[in-house]
């Protein structure tokens, strides 16, 4: 496949190489669950797999040295996540408290360690 973006136009390229390869997984998910009910054991397992994959996404974002967050030192990311999670627990499972604390910690950490 040697086509380039200029030959195709950005919108066609978006549909062929962005939308379709992305949407195929949603479609397969839709096809697979035909006739399964919410309480079936397969769905319980699939849900556990989806939850674990989400944790994998999180671990990748926090630990990866080359990903989207590479401008923030890894130690700062880990520290801020731990602090944010502690605040979440202390504030009786408040998502806002956790996110705000984590954000404050990551800004402070980036300021201190990246300079």
């Amino acid at each position: 496949m040697s086509a380039t973006l200029h030959e195709l136009g950005p919108v066609l390229a978006l549909i062929l190489f962005g939308f379709l390869p992305n949407e195929v997984w949603r479609l397969v998910g839709l096809m697979l669950v035909r006739g399964l009910d919410e309480k079936s054991q397969i769905i319980v397992w699939v849900r556990a797999v989806a939850t674990a994959m989400l944790a994998g996404v999180l671990a990748q974002l926090i630990l990866s040295t080359s990903g989207a967050l590479s401008s923030i030192p890894v130690e700062v990311r880990i520290g801020a996540a731990v602090l944010g999670f502690a605040a979440f627990l202390i504030a009786r499972r408040s998502v806002f408290a956790g996110v705000l604390t984590g954000e404050a910690a990551v800004m402070l950490g980036t300021y201190v360690f990246a300079n």
């Binding site: 997984w25 998910g29 669950v33 769905i43 849900r47 989806a50 989400l54």
Partner: peptide
């Protein structure tokens, strides 16, 4: 990840 999410 969308496959198990949609299926769940």
């Amino acid at each position: 990840r969308f496959l198990p999410m949609v299926a769940a």
